[in-house]
Design a binder for these strands. Sequence first.
DNA 1: CATAGGATCGCCT
DNA 2: GGCGATCCTATGT
Length: 227
Amino acid sequence: MAQMRVRSLRLPSESQHPGTVSRSAILPLSFYDRSCVTEIAKDLLGKILVTHTGGIRTAGRITETEAYAGHNDLACHAANGRRTRRNEVMFGPPGHAYVYLCYGIHSLFNVVTNGEGHADAVLIRSIHPLVGVETMLLRRGLTKAPKEFTTGPGRLTRALGIHTSHNGSSLLRGPSNAKHLTGDDSFEIWIESDGYRVNVESILVTPRIGVDYAGEDAKKPWRFVLK
DNA sequence: CATAGGATCGCCT
DNA sequence: GGCGATCCTATGT
């Protein structure tokens, strides 16, 4: 990966949640502003997806991603340059959230990559919970933590409180300190690195899930799973 | 305006 | 492994 400039983020007192480290770095624009979406999808494994609202932080380590390669990819919403109100955000600048509703129920979270006009995105399919487990369980309507409750693209968004109203949100900002704000006014999403290293042998590569309609593109090995 | 189908999940058998 | 939930999006008339 090209050298990237990271912005140091000093975490406030809430950082002594188990699983966090004293210092993390929000992924900068240069991380998302790259042309190889499969490379970015791989690089996102091991990073930490964070949401912060009303002073409450929830976060988990990314363990599964899928790359969607814009207009050349029949599995992508922007296949053949299709541009609609729903997928408009994908054509915009990198480092933003593309959140859309799937099967009428699930909000699916993607990060927009590559330069403006290139509708590339990475779908986040699973995280391992790290911060704010109680809050995430509450959002999932659970009282006790099952083995895995933030696996699956629909379940992780629900645990993190992400929904379609966050479509278009920038991922380049840190936490809002505006605790007096409520609901979406204070909702921030970002992805950070805590230095966790992923080695190539621990990455399982498979075709993407649920894209059988995409012909030959359905066979492309663009799903990445942290073993 | 009508309608088919979807980058899923959870519960059932 | 089957199926219902649940509703937006895209597309066609």
